[in-house]
Simulated scan of single mutants.
Amino acid sequence: MMEVKGNKLLLLIGTAWLFDALDVALLSFIMPVIKQSWHLSASQMGAVSAVTSLGMMIGALGCGYLADKIGRKPILIATLLLFSFGNLLLTVTPNVGWFLAVRFITGIGLGGELPVAATIIADHFTGTKRARMLVLVDSFWAFGWILASVLSFVIMPKFGWRITVLITALMGLYALLMRRHLPEKTKTEVTSKLGFGPALREVWSAKYRRATFCLSTLWFIIMFAYYGMFLWLPSVLVMRGFSVVHSFGYTVLMSLAQLPGYYLAAWLIGKMPRKVVLTIYLLGTMLSAWAFGTATTETMILISGAWLSFFTLGAWGIMIAFTPGQFEVSVRGMGMGFAQSIGRMGATIGPYLVGSLIAIGFKIPAIFMVFVGALIIGVIVLLVGLRDEDR
């Protein structure tokens, strides 16, 4: 089969991040609508948020393993099929029970997409080129969030959330046609003969144990901080009178601020060690989180929020560049999938912890200090535990 060139592969694989961001962002816009129309309780709203993350945990681990066992391309196509099929079903859900069931299915597809997509890039490139390509495909997350904002502010008010979701399902089917042009297999790709249990034991063997533990911890912390700060706390800021955080302009600004964060990270990776670049971005995330949490004016919220987007998503991109290269090709999908499945636990716990802390009287600045503390642990794990080299 003719080799897929770098730029074409970048666009094909980038759709994985675009759809993942599109779905996460769109759900945050849909939840207030279904809360009102279906008269949902706080616990039901929590379930709607958590069930997708549960599906993502299972999808990351299961699809990562299957990518090693069966091959990257068929599993990546299968994850997009699940996403598109799930969103088609979502348009006809009559109540919250069916909505939860369908969101679980969709979550499996979404959670499985990113580790497999990152593994394909890692299989095609080596060294600095690999790291830069992984950061650049992760930058498609910003485009997905912007697209969700446009759909939510332009389409949803006129045609409702069901038509909006239908549009995303049709977009997924179009991307499915594009993915037929993915290469069948790279020169380095091999099909693993290990069963699920042995493959899982392999990534926890002496050879990979240190990398698996450190990467899983870092993914947990980064997703814990990102989802806790970006999905839950804007609602708190609205209650404090800062309605700008639910405006179209704010949402697009936060999304656009991510892009220079990604692109600078991709450039810096070729100039200095990845551990140094990631440390800089994690420290930047801490400072931005502190500024955002203590902001008292809309101007400060906008400025600190933009910097928070810049550093947090840039750190996510560098982690994408770090993770797959820590595992040899035969267990790369499982290693990437396991680390990200642990991260999805952080994505579930972060928003819930915010609600719990507020319920017992914590103020917003104190809550952001919790995230700062977690990020400090992340920096220590990074500097002490990870090697800045690829296999």
Rank of each mutant, 00 (worst) to 15 (best):
K185P: 06
K187E: 10
S192T: 09
K193M: 04
K193I: 01
K193A: 06
L194I: 00
L194R: 01
G195C: 04
F196W: 02
G197H: 02
G197Y: 05
P198M: 08
P198E: 15
P198H: 12
L200F: 07
R201N: 09
R201K: 07
V203A: 09
V203T: 10
W204Y: 10
S205C: 06
A206L: 11
A206H: 11
A206G: 15
Y208R: 00
R209V: 13
R209N: 03
R209I: 10
R210F: 00
F213V: 14
C214F: 03
S216V: 08
S216N: 07
T217N: 08
L218Q: 05
W219D: 03
W219I: 04
I222H: 02
M223I: 00
F224C: 09
A225C: 04
A225S: 14
Y226H: 14
Y227G: 03
Y227H: 05
M229F: 15
M229T: 15
F230V: 14
F230D: 05
F230S: 09
L231T: 11
L231W: 00
S235V: 02
V238F: 01
V238P: 03
M239Y: 10
M239P: 13
M239G: 15
G241D: 13
G241E: 08
F242L: 01
F242Y: 14
S243G: 03
V244Q: 03
V244R: 01
V245Q: 11
S247A: 13
G249R: 00
G249T: 02
Y250V: 06
Y250N: 11
Y250S: 14
Y250H: 11
Y250Q: 14
Y250M: 13
V252T: 01
L253H: 11
L253C: 13
S255P: 13
L256T: 15
Q258M: 13
Q258V: 02
L259A: 01
L259P: 14
Y262S: 03
Y263S: 15
Y263P: 13
L264T: 07
A265D: 10
A266D: 14
A266L: 07
W267Q: 06
L268I: 07
I269E: 11
I269K: 00
I269G: 08
G270H: 00
K271H: 05
K271T: 01
P273L: 10
R274P: 06
R274W: 09
K275R: 08
K275D: 02
V277K: 12
V277C: 10
L278N: 11
T279L: 00
I280R: 00
L282Q: 15
L283Y: 11
T285C: 12
M286S: 12
M286D: 09
M286V: 05
L287R: 13
S288Y: 03
A289H: 04
A289G: 12
A289S: 13
A291R: 07
F292I: 03
F292P: 12
T294D: 11
T297M: 02
T297K: 03
T299M: 10
T299G: 08
T299N: 09
T299P: 08
M300S: 12
M300I: 04
I301C: 01
L302T: 04
S304K: 04
L308M: 09
F310D: 13
F310N: 07
F310I: 02
F311P: 07
F311G: 13
T312G: 04
G314A: 08
G314Q: 06
W316P: 14
W316M: 15
W316H: 12
I318Y: 05
M319Y: 04
